[in-house]
Design a protein around this nucleic acid. Sequence first.
DNA 1: CGAAGAATTGAGGTTAATCAACGAGGGTGG
DNA 2: CCACCCTCGTTGATTAACCTCAATTCTTCG
Lengths: 215, 215
Amino acid sequence: MELYRSSNNHGDVIGRAMDVPPRTVIIDEGDPARSVYKIQVGQVMLSKLLPDGRRQIFELLGPGSIFGVTPNQRHDSVAESLTDTKLSIFERSWLNHVPSIENSFVHCLEAQICALHDHAVLLGRKTATERVSTYILNLVNGHDQNSEQTQSHVFVIVPMTRSEIADYLGLTLETVSRAFSRLKRLGVISYERHDGPMRVAIHRLGPLTGTYWTA
Amino acid sequence: MELYRSSNNHGDVIGRAMDVPPRTVIIDEGDPARSVYKIQVGQVMLSKLLPDGRRQIFELLGPGSIFGVTPNQRHDSVAESLTDTKLSIFERSWLNHVPSIENSFVHCLEAQICALHDHAVLLGRKTATERVSTYILNLVNGHDQNSEQTQSHVFVIVPMTRSEIADYLGLTLETVSRAFSRLKRLGVISYERHDGPMRVAIHRLGPLTGTYWTA
DNA sequence: CGAAGAATTGAGGTTAATCAACGAGGGTGG
DNA sequence: CCACCCTCGTTGATTAACCTCAATTCTTCG
């Protein structure tokens, strides 16, 4: 990918240049994901905002870095310049005109980058109970064979030990255990101890998505 | 344990299949980065180990996900199966036989994914002072115009406010300020207050890379 | 000069880590 | 079979790290 080139009859569609002053929002949450940006000069930071105002900046990018990638129709994070910045803008639609294997490969990487962004928000800004709740929710939402639904309940298989979950969520195994116990005590989930992987029944999805937690 | 399909005249080079039992290390830190893996069935976790044993798992991957990407010659993280897993293995060298633009695009994404992995380790497992130290070090190492070197000192420009650094490192601005003060008090760095972006002189790089912090 | 924004520092509170004990299951070997 | 050990999970008591709230300083800018 090189700089300042209009390589086809779309003229300014590909590799269009843009200059951005410092502290300027380049992409906002919810913007349609039409373009991908490459930094030529300057620095850009990517962040997300939780509903209650907590913010996590998860990438600091310099020359050569790319941002604006997402597998979705809209951006789910904010891109803001730190310094005077020069960008090259690439139409997203153009990215799809590439061999299919490569294309799907890029698609996978994009999705995984977005997941890493969400995980940075979790690690940087969420409480222990919020982390465990998010973990459970992701198990449900993941198109896993792990999730199973009956009329009233959702069941998920938790394929990790407390220690592994702790290392994933940036906690200790004791704190993870306490968070599970609290969710059980609150009636949000239920589970029994037994040998194999843990099987959790989710009684109310709402509290798991909520932001605040009380006793 | 292997070899379902050979899809072209490269023989078993592309899309070779592999079956992995649960709790098996697929990639270890330091392994030569010859292949890229795609999950067909099962779940895989990616993690890093700090020298003192702290571990951070930063990705949980399911069917369709890719792992083993790195811009380097060797893997810098561990991939381990959680469940019975079926993988497709792609030769890394083959990934380079694609149009250059796409190729460099993938390269950028790979590098950024690795940075996100490191940042997850920071957010999940490092102390406040370690986070700030790592932040400063990355400013130095980043091929930035921000870093400048004289005979004895290294200078870096810190282009962010305490609040932004805090949101990046998963801390509060007060904790960031205290960490800078501590590093200054310890004689590791020095800086003065003034209007523009902060300019930091680094006197000893060693302590910034160290893991443990006293007084 | 007064106001506003950024940074620093202190005091006190809260969350999660640490240290520790205990219980449940699953092997293994006697 | 039982005794033993080991891993895993739970829970309690205490500690430590970080957050919150607050006061102060420095700088710039109107």
